[in-house]
Design a protein around this nucleic acid. Structure first.
Length: 392
RNA sequence: GCUGGAGUCGUCUAGUGGCAAUGACAAGAGACUGUAAAUCUCUCGCUUUCGGGCUUCGUAGGUUCGAGUCCUACCUCCAGCA
């Protein structure tokens, strides 16, 4: 079982530490979106420097290129990418469901590569196998995204997600026993040697599985999904299919009141808007990932405590102040808005690098400060102060 | 000086009798939430009660129902010849 220590609780919110084979994650924490085993425009050293604790890569993208086997050959995601720290993989379900011409059957999803049109089929088993090879510390179960937000489609997607979860759990356990067990365990299984308690308890090559809660905007479905996922022998939970902050707090309260307290919860894909992170943490989510901060950055939309600004706007041409006062990121400590404006207008690659450093830092540190404020009991004040200024 | 060619929105460019006029860039603004996104959308002569109205394709005339497109003259630029 994935070790998760809770240091402090406040309502549904909690401060904790997830202990992974590649290191600890202090939670709540923002996870950098490293879809193709890289955070776009940033090096892993950039990510360490800006304070990121962990990254999340994507199984769909990695099986197309460079292939799960190659990442395994390279020592697994953390080593292959030189991140060396804790890692997550998303199952690929979300991407595949966004492709045109997908054929969904009970067995899995048939789709064509967006790169060369080659036909693939991903099933709960194959996603688990690929994620095992990719070798992140924490894997997501292969879930089913609803094709619309109608109750019928949501219910169907949720129920299939549950059936697929059972298959994910079985496959994950099988991989653990075949590949993850230490040599002592394997000797034991072959009748060669007895097994000590610690050897039995802790495989040598451990990877962990999160179930994914579905149910869309229907809180009764969310509750049903949370109960189902909670009943399974998984290490934590992803909360999927959330697209807007509207009603998210109620949904998260419903779900996180049902999920067992002693396992971590990851809010999938949310965190472009700071309010998502405050609400998410307040309602008991421990980790977040989102492509928003880096995508916004590449497109010139940059976070400040007074809201996002578009650095390409003409009004910043002569603005020689830092992007954001009192920001300790490499970008704000060294460069002016006028310079960033110039880099964007001239389409220099450095524009995207500096902007990504800032936006990622901003979101990572906002969640870090949420964690600190929960620890010292000032969360409510921090939330009010931050949100009233940011969204004024 | 002669002979050819060319002058169209900030720039380059399409256009060969129905045109406020093509495309690109530049400019201005917006979007983006488990990344087919260093992407996409809108505006880009002036004006409007969004139906339209007005003024535009080097300049000035002309032919025509209608001219950026045809004719004449002039101006400027380019090439070749003197």
């Amino acid at each position: 079982m994935l070790k998760f220590d809770i240091e402090k609780k406040e309502g549904l919110a909690r401060v904790g530490v997830i202990h992974t084979p590649h290191g600890d994650i202090k939670t709540p924490s923002f996870v950098g979106a490293a879809t193709r085993a890289t955070v776009k425009a940033l090096t892993m050293q950039n990510m360490r420097d800006l304070g990121s604790q962990t990254i999340l890569a994507n199984t769909y993208h990695l099986i197309l290129r460079p292939g799960a086997n190659l990442i395994k050959e390279g020592g697994g995601l953390a080593e292959f990418s030189s991140w060396h720290g804790p890692t997550f993989t998303d199952s690929g379900g979300f991407q595949i469901f966004s492709l045109p011409d997908v054929k969904i059957t009970e067995n899995g999803v048939k789709f064509k590569s967006h790169i060369d049109g080659a036909s693939f089929e991903m099933t709960p088993e194959s996603s688990m196998q690929d994620q095992w090879k990719i070798g992140a510390d924490i894997h997501m179960a292969f879930d089913h995204l609803a094709k619309s937000d109608s109750f019928e489609d949501m219910k169907e997607a949720m129920e299939r997600t549950h059936r697929w979860l059972d298959r994910c759990v079985d496959e994950h356990r099988k991989l653990m026993d075949e590949d993850g067990r230490n040599s002592a365990f394997k000797d034991h299984m072959l009748g060669r040697a007895p097994l000590s308690a610690s050897e039995k308890a802790e495989p040598d090559h451990q990877q962990y599985l999160y179930a994914v809660v579905q149910g869309g905007t229907f809180n009764d479905l969310r509750a049903e999904s949370a109960r189902y996922c909670a009943s399974k022998p998984v290490d934590g939970f992803g909360i999927g299919g959330v697209f807007t902050a509207d009603g998210m707090d109620e949904m998260l309260k419903t779900v996180n009141s049902i999920l067992p307290e002693n396992k971590p919860r990851h809010l999938l894909g949310m965190g472009q808007e700071p309010i998502d992170l405050f609400v998410g943490a307040e309602c008991g989510c421990d980790t977040f990932d989102c492509v928003g901060p880096t995508r916004m950055a590449r497109n010139g939309s940059l976070y400040t405590l007074d809201g996002r600004i578009n650095i390409k706007n003409a009004k910043y041409k002569h603005d020689f102040s830092p992007l954001m006062q009192d920001c300790n990121c490499e970008c704000c400590k060294n460069y002016t808005r006028a310079y960033l404006h110039h880099l964007f207008k001239t389409d220099e690659i450095t524009a995207k690098i500096l902007a990504s450093i800032h936006n990622e830092y901003f979101i990572v540190h906002t969640v870090d400060r949420i964690r600190e404020s929960l620890k010292d009991g000032t969360f409510a004040n921090y939330k009010t102060e931050f949100l009233s200024r940011y969204y004024k």
